[in-house]
Amino acid sequence: MSKVVLKLGDDVSTDIIYPGRFMATVLPSETPQYAFADLLDFNARLKQKEIQPLSVIVAGGNFGCGSSREQAASCLKGPEFIVIARDFARIFLQNSINLGLNTIICPDIEAEAGDELEISANQVVNLTQEKSFAITPLPRARQAIIDAGGLIAYTRERLMANK
């Protein structure tokens, strides 16, 4: 069971997820402190470690639009968020898959902050609202990267195979 800790609308840009002024910080171990830095209350809760791993962020369409900055994915991967959106912007989705951030495409999702969700392979059940929503599976090619444990591991396998 996972709890929704943040509910967002459409077109949430990478400038909201990870503001440009923190871009000199690049290492995945250091980026989580700046996640949603301008959502002051949320960022404070995150920094004080009040948010449990596997908590859920729910968003509308085009989540992660804008810059290719990978910090926007690594800052959410660190605290082990699950991001459920109606759909994602391309580069953000690919970065998330590459880094192993759990992103779920759920075109009809309805959930509010505080709702409890049960997430399985093909659906999200909102236990609070007693509704369920289908998950759109990722393309097979992308699933292969996830199965390998991310793009670093996947590339390493390929390198060794080419040797």
């Binding site: 970065n95 590459n98 880094l99 090619a141 793009l151 996947y154 590339t155």
Partner: peptide, 21 residues
């Protein structure tokens, strides 16, 4: 087209970009 840093690292290693739809 734009890609992320880890994807670029993979390109630097392989000279190809993997899994382009």
């Amino acid at each position: 087209f734009g890609i992320g840093a880890t994807e670029m690292a993979s390109v630097w290693a392989l000279g190809r970009i993997l899994n382009v739809e």
